[in-house]
């Protein structure tokens, strides 16, 4: 080719022209432009490759689902740096939780320890429950109804009632 500018390009040079035409020598590029045999040979291979590409597109279905990004912004830290920040945040949250549980007055301003406060409240609730239970045991009806309830301790009323229902003497 170098000695004879009219010599045709061989298959290797045709392939090189398809990979990257700028890799051909200037003389070869010029020849390729004007030579119908070489350009036809190149075009034939180019069309085959283009056809392959077209067929691949043709036989690829359309996606049924579109890409959806998460509604909540994802944490955008990258690599170890991102994970390091996330770890630090978790550790800080754990520390705050532990301090809150062990030293509650640090945030509430109440100097009474959390355990004692809780115990006193529970004891008061228990006492109220016991008092209510005893009250119900003694007087299960409200005060307004207790006035019309007969005295169940007297047996006379019961005898009168029985006599009325089933008289002894006919």
């Amino acid at each position: 080719m170098k000695n004879n500018p009219s010599a045709h390009l061989d298959v290797q040079r045709i392939i090189v022209s398809l990979v990257d035409e700028s890799d051909l020598a200037a003389q070869e590029r010029e020849h390729l432009k004007v030579c119908p045999i070489c350009s036809s040979s190149r075009n034939h291979l180019a069309v085959q490759l283009h056809g392959l590409s077209e067929e691949a597109i043709r036989w690829t279905p359309e996606p049924r689902r579109r890409v959806t990004l998460p509604a909540i912004e994802v944490f955008r830290g990258s690599g170890w740096k991102g994970r390091w920040y996330a770890g630090l945040a978790t550790a800080a949250a754990c520390l705050v939780l532990v301090i809150t549980l062990t030293v509650p007055h640090l945030f509430t301003g109440n100097k009474q320890p959390y355990g004692e406060l809780n115990l006193a409240a529970e004891m008061a609730a228990d006492e109220m429950l016991i008092a209510t239970t005893e009250d119900i045991e003694e007087n299960c009806l409200p005060a307004s109804l207790q006035e019309i309830v007969p005295d169940t301790g007297s047996t006379d009323d019961n005898d009168d009632f029985l006599d009325f229902v089933a008289p002894v003497d006919a």
Binding site: V11, Q12, I15, V19, D23, V47, E55
Partner: peptide, 26 residues
Amino acid sequence: KTHLYRAIEKFKNEGFSLGHDPKEAL
């Protein structure tokens, strides 16, 4: 480029057929 060159060479030598005449696309 080297890998692509070799792959195209094999594509040409294998005579990969598209199932239709590629010249139709011209």
